[in-house]
Design a binder for these strands. Structure first.
Lengths: 192, 192, 192, 192
DNA sequence: CATGAATGAGCCTTCATTCAT
DNA sequence: AATGAATGAAGGCTCATTCAT
């Protein structure tokens, strides 16, 4: 289940699956579509994954690990100000959501399609990611730069960013850096 | 297609469908499930709707009209301050999202399942709804109470609220009024 | 589950299934073959049966009820001698095994293919049938006409008859009455 | 194809296959199950057997040769009385049916799964075995110890014994010697 | 309006078999 | 010999939709 233990072939197939899942949704993506995109026959898919569910699980696990890792590194590299740290998180979130792998969007929008078992298995990963946000926002709140309930602000911020999957065009005129700035400006008290 | 022209029976069936679509998603809700919940046989469903797509279209049209109507009335009733008007919109949004009809959530999360034809037909309704938000936020921006790009703030606000469908429990300790307040506090400059 | 409650259509389909199951075995009979023989499409089959297992269960239940009913009536009609009663049972067994319905053979040779649940459900029927045999043989033993353990003799007799499914040709020169006589002669002490 | 020419490795694999075929039936035993039980991968199996059919053929040939050889030796060792000779045959039959190799049962119950070609190839072996029985029973009939048609009695006897595969528990209180005695008592006129 | 039976296209999955390494 | 990846045909089953009654 660990990304580190996944064979390169499996990782490769996982990324292809992520793209299709994001484009059409898990339910509408047939294993034949997946196999076609992977350049193999549908039966061969089951050498790498036990069933279709496991592909979804692999996509979500992979993408969540990737987002978590990227966020941690971005925080480590960021200047120690509230704005800088929030900006780092927002940029990572948007970048993982809109990069060519699309996998983060699958994690968000197909979460309910996971089997109960897989969902439980992945919950701690997702929680770890959200905790990163919560901590930074909680710091900001204590510093007086953010007002209200930190947990709700966190969810509002993530919701605002997640919804960009529905309207933001990465090939359009605006880049993710600008989007991230807008978010931070919205959350953090302006004059500070 | 117009709500006004829908027979009471069809409206009743539409509401039942909305609940199932929200609980399990459009793709996972079979025509037989719908018929069961409606107390009829699956064949009979097609006396009321031409096909499954039309049911989704009816649900989304109904819910969007409802949200639009509610929002307009709330704005008409609201005090003429930025905060009051925004608060009114946020409450309506949350209430239509979490009431027992669930239909607004279907409009948001199953939008992509509409046929191209239906989507086009419903786009003006949705745009009308979003325009309501955009106008209020644009007013606020001109009044200096909101900073940044009004269009983006609008989408961020809606995204933040839409995402509550994923985590907010209407039966929990917090009510939608508090949630709405948190949102307005987040968007509108505090000291004003 | 009761034969009496089966729709005529379902009974008709059950008989066709019995023939195919006997000819090729349950595992080698595909639902498409069944549907072809029934003159319908494979999907339509599942309006009458929940799954393939249920077809097998229906065949076995139907045939065992039929054999049980026939055996009881034959015993009621038989003269009250050991030989006559045994002969009656043997003829019914052979006739139900080799008639055009073939269903009894399915009950015998596909018993292990039943799901655990179905098997349990049908065991009491089969036991009722075997008990009929056991009682007659036990009577014979007490009358000194049969020697040895009644339970084993019963199973040997049934095994001998069941095996005819593998070699006896109903269209050949010998009829089931002669076969039945041979069995009774083998079991019952000759001079009596 | 001849046992004598089979490599020890192939014989070993054949025995493992026999166990699985008996436990679950030929059709339900997959090549992967066989390979797992053999401690190799499924692809490797085809270095030892051309296809799955050949495995079944090998199992049946092996077991039938074994039964034939055992029966001949038992007859050679038996006292020259009808009862003793029949008893010897019955014991060998039961022992080969219920020993840890299970292979004889496969020969009986999966005979129809053989390809036409293989079946023809093995028929002479099976006939040789049945002829052994037929000869002894024919002797008994001529000696007045068995009544009726020798061919039918032979088949009835074999059927009775074969059916033990369905109900006899080798680990239970009764041993095969007792079972064999019951059979002989059933067939052979008692007092004579 | 309602129903039960039927349809046909398609879905996920299985499995014996092949073959380059 | 052995393996792992791939194949292709088939299998059981689902489901939106139709239609005679």
């Amino acid at each position: 289940m660990n990304v580190a233990t996944d064979s390169p072939r499996r990782q490769q197939l996982t990324r292809i699956a992520a793209r299709l899942f994001m484009q059409q949704g898990f339910d509408r993506t047939t294993v034949r579509m997946l196999a076609d995109a992977m350049g193999i026959k549908s039966g061969s898919l089951f050498h790498h994954f036990a069933d279709k569910q496991e592909i979804l699980c692999a996509v979500i696990e992979d993408s969540t690990r990737h987002a978590l890792f990227s966020a941690r590194r971005a925080l480590a590299d960021a200047a120690p100000t509230t704005r800088a740290r929030l900006l780092a998180l927002a940029r990572v979130h948007l970048d993982t959501l809109h990069d060519d792998r699309h996998a983060h969007g699958v994690a968000l929008y197909e979460w309910r399609r996971l089997s109960d078992e897989d969902r439980e298995h992945l919950t701690h990963l997702r929680d770890a990611y959200e905790t990163l946000w919560l901590q930074v926002i909680e710091e900001a709140r204590r510093a007086g730069q953010v007002q209200g309930d930190a947990a709700i602000i966190t969810r509002y911020a993530l919701g605002a960013l997640n919804w960009t999957a529905r309207w933001y065009d990465p090939d359009g005129p605006m880049d993710t850096a600008q989007l991230a700035h807008e978010l931070v400006d919205m959350i953090v008290a302006p004059a500070s």
